[in-house]
């Protein structure tokens, strides 16, 4: 499924508004206020079962009938669980993923066991779709920071400023199945334009990881990501000097558009000497692979011994100098 309909926008800040929203998630503008009957009227809330007049009950959080105990349904503000509306294309096939894994396992570096390539047995290649938010926005960023520019006797000098930033197709991982490091390694491999997110819905054998957050918590994560990205960009491009600390940003966000996407990947479970490891290949770009690999305990011990010997040699040299 792909989100073909143009979503509604907040008239004040331009952020995407979704069905059931009572207020804009960015600027808190009240949306879609129900039309009020202009004429004065009186209302008696009556039970539909026994007809008795009902009264609000604080334990039920709704009007409750004192005679038959029925509680009225109350309209809650919508905060449904997130669901992917866009699926990224998956140009990488399972065979491509296997081939990439074969190359990757043979190039695990000097610390890997010498027989890793021959003895690693691939148990399973599973196609998964993992969840992420992709957002676009622009922001007026007010920033403050300390840097070495303009410092006199102290190491730091204060700076403050304001700049316009644009966030284009910024992904934020929402997966719990992938580790943070795996998600971070995979994210740059996905192209996130309109065409790249027009993939087909997953097949029967595919695992689709759900978003495990309600809408409001998801928005908080996106806003946190926008702040973190803005702070990193400000520190890199706008704060003068070569060293910075205490970079703070405040965002006046406009036109926030968030898409909930499912990103394809292959999880390759493999065994080495009976122990299970896994690698993950991007479903968008077979060159991107991340994962865990065993290390040779003998080589690790040798490395530790060499480090100790080097430390002892330095200590001896310092002592006899």
């Amino acid at each position: 499924m792909s989100g073909a309909l143009e979503p509604a926008s907040c008239v004040r800040c331009g952020a995407t508004v979704e069905a059931g929203d009572a207020r804009c998630a960015v600027c808190a503008l009240v949306l879609d206020a129900p039309a009020a009957d202009a004429a004065a009227h009186v209302v008696v809330v009556r039970c539909t079962v026994c007809g008795a007049a009902m009264r609000y009950d604080e334990r039920a959080g709704a009007a409750r009938c004192a005679f038959c105990g029925c509680a009225a349904r109350v309209e809650e503000l919508a905060d449904p669980p997130e669901q992917a509306g866009w699926y990224a294309t998956r140009p990488v096939s399972p065979d491509d993923a296997r081939a990439r894994f074969a190359a990757w396992i043979g190039a695990r570096g000097w610390l890997a066991p010498g027989d890793l390539r021959d003895r690693a047995r691939l148990d399973e290649v599973r196609a998964i779709w993992w969840p992420a938010w992709v957002f676009d926005a622009r922001a007026l960023v007010s920033w403050t920071a300390d840097s070495d520019a303009g410092a006199r006797r102290a190491r730091w000098a204060p700076h403050a400023g304001q700049c316009e930033l644009a966030f284009d197709q910024l992904p934020v991982a929402a997966s719990r199945a992938l580790t943070e490091a795996e998600a971070r390694a995979l994210l740059p491999s996905y192209r996130l334009g309109e065409d790249d997110l027009a993939g087909e819905a997953p097949g029967d054998g595919d695992v689709v990881e759900p978003f495990e957050l309600p809408r409001s918590a998801g928005r908080d994560r996106v806003l946190d990501a926008a702040r973190a990205t803005a702070a990193a960009r400000v520190a890199a491009r706008h704060v003068p000097g070569t060293r910075t600390r205490r970079v703070h940003v405040e965002l006046l966000l406009r036109d926030l558009r968030t898409r909930r996407v499912a990103l394809p990947a292959y999880v390759l479970a493999y065994r080495y000497r009976g122990k299970l490891y896994r690698a993950v290949v991007s479903g968008h770009d077979a060159a991107t692979i991340t994962g865990a690999a065993p290390r040779s305990p003998w080589k690790l011990a040798l490395l530790a011994a060499l480090a100790l010997a080097a430390a002892a040699a330095v200590a001896w040299w310092l002592a006899t100098r």
């Binding site: 209302v43 039970c47 539909t48 709704a62 009225a72």
Partner: peptide, 24 residues
């Protein structure tokens, strides 16, 4: 929260008149 079988009836009527000081 317990939920009743149906939403309650909102019986609406017009006030009969105005009392002193804007009372209904």
């Amino acid at each position: 929260m317990s939920a009743g079988p149906e939403p309650p009836t909102h019986k609406t009527a017009r006030p009969q008149g105005e009392g002193p000081g804007g009372a209904v």
